[in-house]
Write a protein that binds this DNA or RNA. Structure first.
Lengths: 129, 129
DNA sequence: CTTGCATATACCGTTAACGGAATATACCGA
DNA sequence: TCGGTATATTCCGTTAACGGTATATGCAAG
């Protein structure tokens, strides 16, 4: 993971929003989809982009893929993620993402057995640590 | 100058080296050319790329164009330039650029009336503040 | 006003990012 | 095994970055 590759990953707003959200903790694809309000394929492809370059890690849980920031980020990555947090801390789009994330967490915590799409209770739920 | 645009500017090694060098002070194109050892057109185009996005400023002096970092950088730019400095401080390529810059400055200070190409003394010299 | 140097721009080919549509895969519950 | 949900991948068209070659512009010395 080179410095240039890090910057390449930071060149897209969707990826910036994903990275910003993941700094508050791991998320599955459908939750990202809900928060960012973007089509699944778009989220999925940006996550693949980030994963192949080592900016995020993923683990499988049932049929969800849960994405998170690396447990051991390089010095360059850590520095740039910190810088990103600083840069977007007052940005409306990123703040709204945070808010939506909190609302979603609250909904999940309230035991509403809904994962993402709010279509039907399914008895299943992505469990985030 | 958006945050995304800043990251786009940071995606290329030549541009990173230019920005890193400019943090130690302004430079003209031919000096950058000498330090980076890259063709003139490449340097010039990357400088134009940076200039149109507000990452560098330029002023004309005789027939030299002298490039520098913005006198009033945005918060995002300042943060990312600081981050860049931190990230490359131990990188061989960037350190070598610094060394070459110092050698060049010493040569100029020693009154060798040569601007860049070392071809012929011309009696002219780019004067850096 | 011509010559030479410094710099910028136009043109071209190659490559990769990006988004969307469609499809494939994987897993779970019934 | 079947249907549905979550996610990934393939295909495709558009766009922009990048590097190189050639050329143009601007300026200064003589």
């Amino acid at each position: 993971m080179s410095l240039i590759q890090i910057y390449e990953c930071l060149c897209d707003e969707t990826r910036l929003r994903i990275l910003h959200l993941l700094q508050a903790g791991e998320l599955c694809v459908c939750h990202l989809q809900e928060i960012l309000n973007e089509p699944q394929v778009k989220i999925s492809k940006h996550l693949a982009y980030l994963r192949t370059r080592g900016l995020v890690e993923s683990r499988k849980e049932a049929n969800w893929m849960i994405y998170s920031l690396p447990t051991k980020p390089s010095r360059e990555l850590a520095a740039n993620l910190a810088c990103l947090q600083d840069c977007v801390s007052e940005n409306a789009v990123f703040r709204r993402d945070e808010t939506k994330r909190k609302q979603m967490s609250a909904r999940i915590a309230a035991e509403s057995p809904v994962c993402c799409s709010q279509k039907k209770p399914s008895g299943r739920k992505a469990v985030l640590k």
